[in-house]
Amino acid sequence: MGNEELIVKLQELFPAASIIQGNDWPEISFESGADFLSTIDVLKSDQTLAFDYLFCETCVDWKTHFTMVYHLDSTRFRHNIVLKYKLDRETPEIDSLSFVYRTSEQHEREIFDLFGIIFKGHPNLKRILLTEDWVGYPLRKDYDDPINMIKL
């Protein structure tokens, strides 16, 4: 499916979401509180979408809120979308995708480690890159490292 067809199809399926054309791929954004797992379920199991490959999962700290960013690819049709989900900054919680895409088990551990996002239902949520006694979440914008040697 081309990007225009994808946007039309997504608008049919998710009338509540905001869908725009990004630099490369369509971007579909959800506000916090939307049912995330059923969204993913539709995107993965719909016969004309078939997004079976999660190639990038990350988070962005916008100071007022977090945004989870998922890049999805379909190995059958070779079309891509970007899925965004807004998270509250006080209680950053989202459902884990580790049972849908197994690659996200490690990616979610990394995001938990560096951003402090809690993934509900994750089988083994603990720090992966930093030591277990590390205080704070380094990729948050308000994280201040007293011995930061690279700040210019």
């Binding site: 990004g22 630099n23 490369d24 791929w25 190639f55 990038c56 990350t58 960013v69 890049h71 970007v82």
Partner: peptide
Amino acid sequence: GEFYQRVETARGELGVY
């Protein structure tokens, strides 16, 4: 804005977001 670029390295797909 947001940009994404994928390349094929010797080990597989490298993505820069």
